[in-house]
Design a protein around this nucleic acid. Structure first.
Lengths: 139, 139
DNA sequence: ATAGCTGCAAATGCTTTGCAAGGCC
DNA sequence: GGCCTTGCAAAGCATTTGCAGCTAT
């Protein structure tokens, strides 16, 4: 059962990578599994690298960075900016917002329907709204 | 007239520094004038340092960083996080939100009344909402 | 075979820090 | 004078890059 689940997501992962034009290499597959097998997650490069090491996947930190950015460009991840010292990547690419726990440097999703932003200003002149990010800082 | 204005803000600046428990040193006074004399501004350390140089104020980059943080702690500035590579400081400490122009790495204020956030989720367990930051990314 | 990946280590860029010299009260 | 501030240069960190070797197709 667990094995079946693993195989299913393994194939999914490869399919997703191919669909994004990314070669399904050993490292990308392993990182994608860590990222996407467990529901919505928020990771930093450092954290994901540590997880890979724990899972006996040998991958360099540079490759983790490269992979996270490639996944983000491919639309598999979303980058969240809450802290000027660290990059966070969110496996939930849908519309939603975030709690940021300043004490623990941790992010948590807020479902889109729990925050309603009414009366948005329109985008200035020749610009276009790319995203509306709401971060609730908690102390 | 312009001179009077300058003197007035000069005194204001010294008073504000004293009120915040900061010694009004030459560098702090000069930086405070650059920051607070021209209405609401968004600066990075690098930018402020360049402005100081242009204005013939000799101040080291390290001092600019230290000063920006001291001002922030004193409540004279607010730190805005929009880019994981750079710290932005906003002279407008009141409630409001931001446009971020990704092409030019520039911030612009959105008055508080132009964005209405209804139905905020409540803060989890033992936490407290410190701030609700809305950033509209423009491309 | 070959174009694309990966690993390592070095480089980069922003920010902080240590310490001696200088300036405000 | 005493203590806080400053400047400089060096250190610190997260992230990126260059390049030789490896791998998926």
């Amino acid at each position: 059962m667990l094995q079946m689940e693993t195989n299913r997501t393994y194939s999914n992962v490869i399919a997703r990578l191919r669909a994004s034009g990314l070669r399904p290499t050993r490292q990308r597959i392993a990182l994608a599994k860590l990222l996407f097998d467990d529901g919505d997650r928020h990771v930093t490069a450092e954290l994901l690298h540590a997880e890979a090491k724990t899972a006996n996947i040998r991958v360099s930190l540079a490759t983790v960075y490269n992979t996270l950015h490639q996944f983000t460009e491919a639309g598999l991840l979303r980058e969240i900016v809450v802290d000027s010292q660290r990059c966070y990547f969110d496996t939930n690419t849908g519309e939603h917002h975030h709690f940021f726990f300043e004490k623990s440097n941790r992010l948590e999703d807020i479902p889109a329907d729990e925050i309603v932003v009414t009366s948005l200003p329109s985008a200035p002149d020749g610009t276009e709204i790319k995203s509306v990010d709401v971060v609730i800082h908690l102390s």
